[in-house]
Measured scan of single mutants.
Amino acid sequence: MRSPRTRGRSGRPLSLLLALLCALRAKVCGASGQFELEILSMQNVNGELQNGNCCGGARNPGDRKCTRDECDTYFKVCLKEYQSRVTAGGPCSFGSGSTPVIGGNTFNLKASRGNDRNRIVLPFSFAWPRSYTLLVEAWDSSNDTVQPDSIIEKASHSGMINPSRQWQTLKQNTGVAHFEYQIRVTCDDYYYGFGCNKFCRPRDDFFGHYACDQNGNKTCMEGWMGPECNRAICRQGCSPKHGSCKLPGDCRCQYGWQGLYCDKCIPHPGCVHGICNEPWQCLCETNWGGQLCDKDLNYCGTHQPCLNGGTCSNTGPDKYQCSCPEGYSGPNCEIA
Score class of each variant (00 low, 15 high):
T6R: 15
A26D: 05
P227T: 09
N60K: 10
S10T: 15
Y74H: 11
G216D: 10
L109I: 06
R130W: 05
K65R: 15
A155G: 08
C262W: 02
D318A: 09
C293G: 02
Q258P: 02
N215K: 08
L37W: 09
Y82S: 15
E153G: 09
N44H: 04
R59G: 10
L135V: 01
N287H: 06
G216R: 12
E180Q: 09
N118K: 07
S313G: 12
D204Y: 11
Q281R: 10
C55R: 05
F207Y: 07
S125R: 08
N277K: 00
L79P: 02
Q254L: 07
G249C: 06
K65T: 13
P269A: 03
N162S: 08
C300W: 02
K154Q: 15
G159C: 07
E222A: 13
Y192S: 09
D318Y: 14
C92R: 10
C265F: 00
G327W: 14
N162I: 14
F207V: 13
V86F: 13
K76N: 13
L49R: 03
K319I: 15
D72G: 13
F107V: 08
P202A: 09
D72N: 10
G95R: 00
C245G: 10
G95S: 01
T169P: 10
Q34R: 08
R113H: 09
K110T: 15
P325T: 10
Q147R: 03
G52E: 10
V77E: 01
E326A: 07
G114R: 14
N197H: 05
Q258H: 09
I233T: 04
G97W: 10
C322W: 01
Q281E: 08
G30W: 12
D213N: 05
A88T: 11
S112G: 06
E36K: 02
G175D: 03
A127P: 06
P4Q: 15
S41Y: 04
E36A: 04
G327A: 06
E334V: 15
R2H: 14
V86D: 06
R113S: 02
S98T: 05
D140A: 12
G327R: 09
N46Y: 13
A232S: 05
T219P: 13
N105D: 04
Y191N: 02
G289D: 03
G223D: 10
N277Y: 00
L247V: 14
M160L: 13
Q236L: 07
E81V: 11
K27E: 02
L307P: 04
C54R: 01
C322Y: 00
T302S: 13
R5P: 15
A111V: 10
I233L: 11
D204H: 11
L40P: 03
D205N: 09
N44I: 14
Y320H: 06
G52R: 06
S239T: 05
Y132D: 03
Q168R: 12
N60Y: 15
G193D: 08
G237R: 06
C22G: 02
R117C: 12
Q166E: 09
N53T: 03
W280C: 07
C324W: 03
W288R: 04
E278A: 07
N217D: 13
N173Y: 09
W224C: 01
T87P: 15
C293R: 02
Q147P: 13
I183F: 12
P202H: 08
C22W: 04
Q147H: 10
H157Q: 06
V77A: 15
V86I: 10
M160K: 03
L21P: 00
G256V: 00
Q304L: 15
S3T: 15
V146A: 11
A23T: 15
R252T: 13
Y261H: 06
L49M: 04
G95D: 06
G256S: 01
Q172P: 09
I151S: 09
P100H: 08
K198T: 13
A31T: 07
I102M: 06
E334Q: 06
D140N: 04
C276S: 02
G249R: 06
E81D: 11
L21V: 00
D294H: 03
N215H: 08
G301R: 02
H303N: 07
Y210F: 09
W139S: 00
F207L: 06
C187W: 01
G47W: 12
C212G: 04
N60T: 15
T106N: 04
V28L: 07
F207S: 07
C220G: 05
G289A: 04
C276R: 04
Y82N: 05
M221R: 11
D69V: 14
D140V: 07
Y210N: 05
S323C: 02
Y82C: 15
E326Q: 03
F199Y: 04
C284W: 01
T286I: 00
S96T: 05
T67N: 06
L79V: 14
A88G: 15
N173I: 08
N197I: 08
R9Q: 13
A23D: 01
S98F: 09
S164I: 05
I275T: 00
Y261N: 03
L20M: 15
A232T: 12
R165W: 14
F179C: 03
S3A: 14
G330A: 06
